[in-house]
Each structure stands twice: as structure tokens, then as C-alpha cells.
């Protein structure tokens, strides 16, 4: 495939129960492209964690997945509160999620670390009060 394939999703920030729709759709799309299961797993888990973060913290946002010949790029963009201290947010176990989110099994402070673990490159751009953009890359 020489052309870039783009998949675009709006992530609904009001419906926690439907969070994950975009990631599951991406998983299906990548399967159709015939990518290997481990790559698909890494991309879809990293994206799901990002999707959940957007729902928990930022009232939703937008997700783009670009499939290039040599890599998959995931861009998650929100207009949420931003991340004050990115280094702290990246630490395993650090979370600002509230109790209701924790009772659902999230908020363990593993989201961003998992996104980093499952991708080959991750960049976070965040401005407090403006929003956050996370760009992740998985090499093919």
C-alpha cells in the first residue's frame, strides 16, 4: 500500500459505556488489512487506553489512525483540561481519576504507561486549559 489510509473517529465523552468503539473498529480494520495479530493488539490497546483517557478526563475528543507502509500512527486530540505534569502522569500508578471510574476497573494509573509500552514512539503535547494531543507510532 503506497497511499496513506486514514481512519477518523469522534470519541463521545459522555458515554463511558461505549468507550472503546473506535479501538474495536480499528482492530477490525487492521485485521482486514492482514496485519499480524501482535501489531493489531498493540495498536488497539494503546488506542483504547487513549480513548478511555479522553472520556475520563477530557469529555471526549478526536482520534485519527494513519496506516503508512512502514508504520501506524495514532493521533488522539482533545480539548480537555490538559496535563499539568507529564512526567508525573507517565509514572505507573499515578492517577487523577475519581472513585466512580475506579469502581469500573480503571484509574489504576496504567493508561499512559501502557500506551508507551505498546508503541515504538509516543509524544504528548499538552497545554493546561487548552487540551492534549498524544501521537503514537507502531512500526510495521
Amino acid at each position: 500500500m503506497s497511499e496513506v489510509l486514514n481512519f477518523h473517529f469522534n470519541v463521545d465523552g459522555n458515554d463511558f459505556t461505549s468507550a472503546g468503539q473506535a479501538s474495536i473498529q480499528i482492530k477490525k480494520n487492521l485485521r482486514r488489512l492482514g496485519l499480524d495479530p501482535e501489531t493489531i493488539r498493540r495498536v488497539s490497546i494503546a488506542m483504547y487506553e487513549g480513548e478511555i483517557n479522553m472520556v475520563i478526563h477530557a469529555h471526549g475528543g478526536e482520534a485519527d489512525v494513519n496506516v503508512y507502509e512502514d508504520r501506524i500512527e495514532i493521533i488522539l486530540k482533545d480539548n480537555g483540561p490538559g496535563i499539568e505534569n507529564i512526567e508525573q502522569a507517565m509514572q505507573e500508578g499515578f492517577s487523577t481519576a475519581h472513585d466512580q471510574i475506579r469502581s469500573l476497573g480503571f484509574g489504576a494509573g496504567m493508561g499512559l504507561p501502557n500506551m508507551k509500552r505498546y508503541t515504538d514512539d509516543m509524544k504528548i503535547e499538552s497545554v493546561v486549559g487548552v487540551g492534549t494531543t498524544v501521537t503514537m507510532c507502531v512500526n510495521l
Binding site: I45, Y48, G105, F106, A108, M110, P113
Partner: peptide, 8 residues
């Protein structure tokens, strides 16, 4: 039971 932990 912690979902992100499971995914990791």
C-alpha cells in the same frame, strides 16, 4: 480486576 493492568 484493574482493566488497564489486564491489558498490559
Amino acid at each position: 480486576d484493574l482493566l488497564s493492568w489486564v491489558m498490559g
